[in-house]
Computed example of a mutant assay.
Amino acid sequence: MCLHDPEPGGLASPGAFAGGRPAGLAPWQASRAAAYVERQLETTIRVVDLARATRLSPSYFSRAFKTTFGLSPQKYVVERRLTRAKRIMLTTNGPLCGIAVTCGFSDQAHLSRVFRRREGAPPNAWRRERRQASALT
């Protein structure tokens, strides 16, 4: 019997595959994965740990996660780290080195490299620009 068995009583659960591709995560799994990422953002987040939290194998989890969130788990984590870094940069005067570590980047250079690639400007310039714009309104 193969994993995708259309016969009742087969190994695949209903809705587990859609057209030969994995379906997305169940709502409880998506919620649990997102919460895990938010709780562990400042640490190393491994796919195997996310998969364990959702009771799936790492390979299936990765495919289902991408189907659900539109990003691989690794890219999702980077996006969440950048979002948190932006929020902290706009609401505090904290140094970038502290913000980087708080958000799970290895150091300020790592934050700056990823930030510039994603936003097109270094973090300090982005912060200054946003603060000036909000001061004018």
Results as ranks from 00 to 15, higher is better:
S59F: 07
L56T: 02
N93P: 00
Q108D: 10
M89N: 04
K75R: 13
G120F: 05
L136E: 10
A125E: 06
L25Q: 03
Q74S: 09
W126K: 11
P73D: 04
V47Y: 05
A30G: 13
E79N: 12
H4A: 14
G94Q: 02
E38S: 15
G98H: 12
P8A: 14
L50A: 05
P58I: 13
R81V: 10
R130G: 01
G120D: 08
T83D: 12
N124G: 09
A125C: 10
R80E: 06
K66Y: 00
V48R: 13
G15A: 14
A23T: 15
R39Y: 09
N124K: 14
P73Q: 05
H110F: 08
P27A: 12
K75F: 04
R127A: 09
S13R: 11
T102M: 08
A51P: 06
D107A: 06
L111R: 03
L25H: 08
R52Y: 11
V101Y: 09
R39S: 11
A12H: 15
L96E: 10
I45P: 01
A135T: 05
I88E: 05
R128C: 06
K86P: 06
A109H: 02
R128T: 09
K75G: 00
Q74H: 09
P122N: 15
V47S: 11
A109C: 03
Q40S: 14
F115N: 07
